[in-house]
Amino acid sequence: MVTYFSEIYRGLLSLFEGMGVTFKEFIKPTVTVSYPYETLEMCERYRGHIELIENEEGEPNCVVCMMCQRACPSDCISIAGKKEEGSKKKVLTKYMLDFTKCSLCGTCVESCNFNALDFSKEYNLASTRKEDFYFDLLKRLEDRNK
């Protein structure tokens, strides 16, 4: 009999103790952010989709060595380049990223020996159309330079 009542007493006490914790949290300041009205800034190392890096003249650093295309585990990257007459270097003519297959592993950036690729900080990428996820990185670079 005594244990029965002591259990009820201890049980009630445990419930009030829990309520005490909840009440303490109730008067604490808010920690959430009301997205999309407020957004957080992405950290420096944030791995978004890839972006081309340009040199001082505004041309991409890429030399079309195909290392990123070969390193990609999901075949997202397709590059094309051509050799201008008289010059030794290849010039990048097409850099397509198929973001539908990309899993943001960053292997392409790591494989690049010419400092031509970087991660973007963009993360609001939701869309209802598939075409929105085929990124033409050369065009994006041109748009950025405008």
Binding site: E44, R45, Y46, R47, G106, E110
Partner: peptide
């Protein structure tokens, strides 16, 4: 996230070390 660059599906370890 500040170290690895992602929040859930990290790809941080490399053969021989870390990224």
């Amino acid at each position: 996230e500040a170290v690895t660059g992602s929040r859930l599906t990290y790809c941080y370890f490399r053969f021989g070390g870390v990224y």
